[in-house]
């Protein structure tokens, strides 16, 4: 066996180790989570309205948690999609080199701020401010969570959308201008459609980021495990539930298994998002003739 063969093998092992981790995590999640379905039926688990895991008898309905995640994610999308795509368009279409040199690092720094800092900022500054401004009983609500999560997901959306826009060949734009289209028409009829699937990828990955975020939602969403009636009530998203309750759940108990089952669902949801994003972006590259 030659030297380069050994090198090849070492790198192959390294590369495949992440696959091993992925499989390992999946197995543990399912092994610990699935037994809950001996106690509650899957449908009752998913659509049960009450989450009282420590009562006697306990209730393991995660609909309030799912809705919590859904509301907060949807709210976050309302923030990060316009902000992220808007800044990507600005960076790509309008900004001069000076503005870019300044804005791009700023957005990257925003992405690198630890989520606990966002959570802290949300608790100490945003929540009290919103509480006063909107005159609501508590400031830690789905709305507050959406706002903060939306800002957190903006860099993800922006940088992926910007990549997608910059992949659109300059020659498309030139061709459009050359037949008398203006900037706006070129953007709407050529650039955006050409970058369209790349931009959807950005939105999906932003969504995936928002669904999976834990620390921030734990800190700013209020934590009430009830079905929210409005945006201005506290909610408890799935991630926050796991983080808050894992410490107190007895290993191997039904509560413990239920938390793992929630983890399982989160895992599946983000997996689906990421696969969808991958498929769409692959199509995008093919469409623009960029290869794989």
């Amino acid at each position: 066996m030659g030297k380069s063969d050994i090198h090849k093998k070492i790198f192959a092992v390294l590369a495949f180790s992440s696959l091993v981790f992925l499989i390992g995590i999946t197995i543990v999640l399912f092994k610990e989570g699935l037994p809950i379905f001996r106690i509650v039926k899957p449908l009752n688990f998913l659509f049960g309205k009450y989450w009282y895991p420590t009562y006697d008898p306990p209730d393991f309905g995660i609909l309030p948690l799912i809705l919590g995640s859904l509301w907060v994610t949807a709210g976050a999308l309302l923030v990060c999609v316009p902000l992220g795509i808007g800044s990507a368009l600005y960076l790509n279409e309008l900004a001069g080199p000076k503005q870019r040199a300044f804005l791009k690092p700023a957005i990257e720094i925003l992405a690198s701020i630890p989520s606990i800092v966002f959570g802290f900022f949300g608790m100490v500054v945003v929540a009290p401010f919103l509480q006063k401004l909107l005159n609501i009983p508590v400031g830690l609500t789905a709305f507050t969570g959406s706002l903060i999560l939306g800002v957190m997901a903006t860099p993800t959306v922006c940088s992926i959308a910007e990549d997608a826009l910059s992949f659109v060949p300059k020659s498309f734009r030139e061709a459009s201008f050359a037949v008398g289209a203006n900037r706006w028409q070129t953007l709407v009829k050529v650039t955006l459609p050409a970058a369209g699937s790349g931009i959807s990828t950005a939105v999906i990955l932003g969504m995936s980021r928002a669904v999976g975020e834990t620390m921030t939602v734990l800190m700013v969403c209020g934590g009430a495990a009830v079905i929210p009636k409005s945006f201005f009530e506290p909610v408890r998203p799935m991630t926050a539930t796991i983080a808050a309750e894992m410490g107190e759940a007895v290993t191997g108990s039904p509560h413990f298994q239920a938390l793992f089952a929630i983890g399982m669902i989160l895992f599946l949801v983000t997996l689906v998002f990421n696969i969808a994003a991958e498929i769409i972006s692959r199509r995008f590259r093919l469409k623009l003739g960029l290869g794989r």
């Binding site: 498309f172 030139e174 061709a175 201008f177 037949v179 008398g180």
Partner: peptide
């Protein structure tokens, strides 16, 4: 630009 059309070096049809 309507009166003066242009064809570029590399064919650049829209997708």
């Amino acid at each position: 630009r309507r009166r003066v059309g242009m064809v570029f070096q590399k064919p650049n049809p829209f997708p």
